[in-house]
Amino acid sequence: MKLLYFAWLRARIGCAEEELDLPPEIREVAGLLDWLQSRGGRYAEALRDLSVVRVAVNQNYVGLEHPVREGDEVAIFPPVTGG
């Protein structure tokens, strides 16, 4: 799975992109975010408040219950501020 981070989430985590071998017990976005938080340190700090975290799977906005699979592109970012 490819993980992408943008804006202050990228800055706080300290990385823009990483490859992850998806642990088999993770089946949806909520589980993935929990697992990332459990890495501690920068991840726990960046993902502390999920009300300001948005997720896209394969470039579509999704909710916490959306499934994730090996091979997906999952992007994690704050609410958008373009225009």
Binding site: F6, A7, W8, A56, Y61, A75, F77, P78, P79, V80, T81, G82, G83
Partner: peptide, 19 residues
Amino acid sequence: DAPFWKSEETPAGERWVES
């Protein structure tokens, strides 16, 4: 809906714009 993010340079330093 368009995935853009703005960061501003201010006298107090750089900060991310909130939605």
